[in-house]
Structure formats: structure tokens, C-alpha cells
Design a protein around this nucleic acid. Sequence first.
DNA 1: CCACTGAATCGATGGATGTCAATATAGGCG
DNA 2: CGCCTATATTGACATCCATCGATTCAGTGG
Lengths: 112, 112
Amino acid sequence: MPVLAPEVVPCCPPLTSAELSEADAARMATMFKALGDPVRLRLFSKVASHPGGEACVCDIQDVGVSQPTVSHHLKKLREAGLLASERRGTWVYYRVEPSVLAGLARLLDLNR
Amino acid sequence: MPVLAPEVVPCCPPLTSAELSEADAARMATMFKALGDPVRLRLFSKVASHPGGEACVCDIQDVGVSQPTVSHHLKKLREAGLLASERRGTWVYYRVEPSVLAGLARLLDLNR
DNA sequence: CCACTGAATCGATGGATGTCAATATAGGCG
DNA sequence: CGCCTATATTGACATCCATCGATTCAGTGG
């Protein structure tokens, strides 16, 4: 039997259907926490809504905080698994991880 | 024309369709932050998955922290608008606010 | 090799936050 | 009223975290 890619395993049925285990709660809380800061949520929103599905840091860094702070928040979003980054020449591009976001949406879905 | 209940106004289209305003980001970040703690997420999960759609504090307080801490976290979830509480006799019951949760799910929905 | 731009890291700091023990409040029941 | 149980509040404390200025790293082009 082949080993399945562990990061693809969908986490957690909707919250209404079953209680989260301690481990799953820790995993999911990390992602919610990453979205739980206004600046980070705006950065995430800017990436998610950017044409082409990705954005250069230079396209999104106008959120009212300094450049190091923007970099810090993007790192947090990356570490939470919500964004992926790739350097192309001078610029670094960020894009959303669709499967991870879908897992969060599924968790919150009441109609299931 | 009747005045619509302001708290029913659905916030924010999906993240992929448009960038969040600063004000909307602040509102939504408050809710994500409330779910961004493992203990709070477990408490929320216990309420959401409890038969009947509501749970007494006594039903859900076994999450590994002290009673005051449980109370503190439930207050946070209430203040974020995710839970509502009602005292009935000796016990206090918590239930999820479905419309608010639905707003969060809508925000994260990629297929729209 | 050097200057320039974009982005990340470092170090410091003030404020937010999770936690607990102690105490208070609320309601039920003798 | 007095005692018991269920929750909430208070106060203290340690840790975490968002933020910034300064610096460093990476890549481009002269």
C-alpha cells in the first residue's frame, strides 16, 4: 500500500459534526491565529484576491506598517501553511495554499 | 422600507474575490483570533458539536485548564460574537451564532 | 566589483494574553 | 438564613507578540 502524502490528508470534519481532538485543535488554532491579526488578514486578503492568484510583496506591502513588519507577518502566514512563497529574480511572490484554506472552510461549514 | 437588522448584514465576499477593507479586516480578525487558541477552539468545538446545539459549561469544561480559565475563554468567544450564552437556573448554556460562523465560512470559500 | 533595490533577519521594547489562586456572585435547597 | 454547587470576576505573573530601526542578504545592472 503506497504511503499517502501526509499534508494532503484533509483535517477535521465540520465543527458541528464532531468534537476536535486536542491535536487537531492545536493544528487548526495555529491557522486561525495566523488570520487573527488585522494586518495579516489584510495581507492574506491582498494575496488571495490578486489577479493570477499570486502577488509580489511589493504589490501588497501598503498596509500601514513598516517593511520589516510586513515581512514578519508574511513569514507567520507561511509558517502556518496558509501561504507559499517563491523568489523570482529580484522579487518574492506569495500565493495561497488552496487545500489548506479549503480545510478551514470545511471546518466552519454549518450545512453538512 | 423596513430597517434591516444591522447584525444580519453579511460581511465580506470570499477572500479571492475582493480585498478586505481595513475595517472589515479588523472585524473578521477578531473572530479568527478568538478561534486561534487551542483551548478556545476545543471549547467552541464542544459547543458546536453538542447535541441540541447548546451545551452547559459543566458539559465542556474538561479541557485541561482551571475553571476560571474556561470562563475567561468562553467570555472571549462571546465577545467575539461566536457564542451566545443564557443562564437557566444554576447552569449557563452556550450556543454558536450560526450566521456569524457562516460569514466566516463564506469568507474562506474558494469556490465562488 | 560596486551601487542600488527588494526582502529578510536581528535586537529591543511596550503592550497584549493565557494561566492560576483567591474571591465574588448567582441560584437552589434545607 | 445558611450551605452547597455552578460560573464569573479580580489580581498577579510569566510569556508571547506586533512593531520598529538597524542591519544583512539576494539579485540586477552599471
